[in-house]
């Protein structure tokens, strides 16, 4: 009895520490957003009364509705397009046989290992030649065919029951109808998990938007936060408030899709 109890206690201690480590930064961020910069530097741990002042300062420095609008537009469109294109590709890779299928797939996985920094300059040249500089299209386009999401959908598709497809074929559905009306509803949890991943990546993307977006009115929230930190005497209250605001949408999406996300990660098919 005592051994089991001890073990259980150990597990709880470990989990408590892990929880503390993952939750504390969020707590610190929220507390910081309500405090003055000097208090934050001093390491004050309690909530302060400076939230509205910080908000005012943030509003005078940043056109918040515009910046959030930009971020939302890019993230939502990116997510929709990426899910459509990459899930189609993942489905195709798994469902349709071809002699060179595995070769192409291996090549794609190999491409996954090339760091973005190496692709950036050629990509930038392409975008400029296409006269897409400083447009949201330039931010969204390169990410749509996401190799990782293709890979993720292909793995998930392995668990998709072939019988469903065969039954649909017998019922006379065309291939695109099978994808739309049989595959997509069945793979709901995979789509949910992919939504979280793609949305978060698009929302938090920094380097590529930094390079292609030139004018201030096109900036996204990540770019704006980075600008706030660049002062010789940064106002940490304002920065942390901006960070809280920037974290909120991804948190909301995660909590809404949490159940499906966990299922999707486990590869479950209903």
């Amino acid at each position: 009895m005592s051994f089991a109890l001890l073990r259980r206690g150990g597990v709880y201690v470990f989990l408590s520490i892990a929880t503390f480590l993952s939750v504390f930064p969020f707590y610190w961020m929220a507390v910081g957003a309500t405090n003055q910069s000097p208090d934050i530097v001093r390491g004050k741990l309690g909530f302060g009364g400076n939230l509205l002042v910080n908000f005012q300062h943030l509003m005078t420095q940043v056109d918040l509705p515009r910046v959030f609008g930009n971020s939302f537009f890019i993230a939502v469109v990116s997510t929709l397009l990426t899910l459509i294109v990459s899930s189609l590709a993942g489905y195709g890779f798994e469902m349709f046989r071809s002699r060179i299928r595995e070769r192409i797939f291996q090549l794609l996985l190999l491409l996954l290992s090339i760091p973005f920094a190496a692709l950036m300059v050629p990509l930038f040249v392409m975008i400029s030649r296409a006269q897409l500089n400083n447009t949201f299209t330039a931010v969204i386009l390169p990410g749509i065919a996401s190799i990782f999401i293709v890979f993720y959908f292909r793995q998930a598709t392995k668990a998709f029951p072939r019988e469903l497809r065969d039954a649909a074929r017998v019922d006379g559905l065309k291939e695109w109808q099978i994808f739309l009306f049989v595959y997509m509803p069945t793979m709901r949890s995979t789509y949910a998990a992919a939504t979280i991943i793609v949305f978060m990546n698009a929302w938090n993307n920094y380097l590529w938007p930094l390079i292609v977006l030139q004018t201030p009115d096109n900036k996204t929230i990540t770019l704006v936060i980075s600008t706030l930190t660049a002062a010789y005497t940064p106002d940490y209250g304002v920065i942390l408030l901006a960070t809280v605001l920037a974290t909120a949408p991804t948190l909301v999406i995660f909590f809404v899709l949490q159940r499906q996300f966990v299922q999707g990660m486990l590869g479950a098919v209903k």
Partner: peptide
């Protein structure tokens, strides 16, 4: 335009 030092270098 307000652009950080690192960003200017990068761009």
């Amino acid at each position: 335009a307000n652009i950080t030092q690192d960003e200017i270098n990068q761009k």
